[in-house]
């Protein structure tokens, strides 16, 4: 009896889809469009967040050393710096390396450095912080600790830039979540309304099923499964469309925007996100049909 019922529900779900092809095509199309907007936004958000994380990782503190510092004292200082728990790495740049770097920057304008009688640049440490400690507060704290150490002449980091950057990150996060939430609600509403329309098309069928003694569950299950399948197909189609548009953009337009994007790589979703998104479509279809069905059977 149970397996007969399960087979019936599956069979009925697909025969419903076959019986109302136009309604189902319209429904899947609407869901695809709604989900496409949502997925496109998500792709933008994921890439933007990735960019911000990468930028955040580049937070550095430059420590300029006093000229009198011996090699041994420099070594000791490096050890002390590495002892700070927020510090990931400290790379030493000697006076000569600094000059070489400056030379590279001014290559072709040799006159600029020729006039120098001696190397005016100090040796320095380039300190990189661990990923977890890149907030403006962390950076300021580390800079303060290092500033107190012997042989340190100056500590420089992009204080202004860093706090602005974190403000941007915060804004992007909040705006991203708000837009994401609004879009999700819109998608659920669109799916619920679309499925409600398909249910209205089946009003006669529902009435007849009730007249011949069909229980609510018996009527509901195939139609709810139908909503789920509509959501699933909608998400597969919208994800596919987004992928092809992404590929087309990357092949034809990405390099034209090179200047604008700089070294930024635009990636498509990771496979696991694609799977989650597809399942999300099915879930939203399920939710949409439960919402519209709940009301319909009550009336």
């Amino acid at each position: 009896m149970f397996t007969t019922r399960v087979f019936y529900f599956i069979r009925k779900t697909f025969s419903n889809i076959r019986a109302y092809p136009l309604v189902n095509i319209l429904s899947v199309t609407t869901i695809s469009i709604a989900l496409f907007v949502f997925f496109a936004y998500l792709l933008l958000y994921v890439n933007l967040s990735g960019l911000l994380v990468n930028l955040g990782e580049e937070v550095q503190i430059n420590i300029y050393l006093a000229d009198f510092l011996s090699e041994q004292a420099t070594e000791e200082l490096k050890k002390d710096i590495l002892k700070i728990k927020e510090v990931e790495d400290a790379s030493y740049i000697s006076k000569e390396d600094a000059l070489k770097y400056l030379d590279e920057i001014f290559s072709g304008q040799d006159d600029v450095l020729k006039g120098l009688s001696k190397n005016p640049l100090p040796a320095s440490f380039n300190v990189k912080l661990k990923k977890r400690f890149t907030t403006p507060e962390d950076v300021a704290l580390v800079a303060k600790k290092i500033d107190r150490m012997n042989g340190v002449e100056d500590v420089v980091y992009a204080r202004e830039w860093l706090s602005k950057f974190y403000k941007v990150v915060e804004i992007v996060k909040v705006v991203g979540i708000v837009i994401g939430a609004v879009l999700s609600l819109a998608v659920i509403a669109i799916i619920a309304i679309t499925i409600k329309l398909t249910l209205l098309a089946k009003k006669g069928e529902i009435e007849i099923m009730k007249l011949v003694g069909g229980t609510n569950l018996f009527i509901k299950v195939p139609m709810i499964l139908e909503g789920m399948i509509q959501g699933l197909f909608g998400s597969i189609i919208s994800m596919g469309a987004l992928f092809f548009i992404y590929r087309y953009f990357m092949e034809h337009y990405y390099k034209d925007f090179g200047l604008f994007f700089g070294a930024l790589e635009i990636n498509f979703f990771e496979p696991y996100i694609i799977i989650y998104c597809t399942l999300l479509g099915a879930f939203l279809g399920l939710l949409g049909s439960i919402i519209s069905f709940g009301r319909m059977l009550k009336t």
Binding site: Y8, G213, T215
Partner: peptide, 30 residues
Amino acid sequence: GIVFQDFKLLNSITVLDNVSFPLEVLGLSR
């Protein structure tokens, strides 16, 4: 069993499927 003046049949499915309805409700095998 109920019979109406306007028949109340589902026009999108066959005669066989229309008549099958009450038996599907009972959970009979195909």
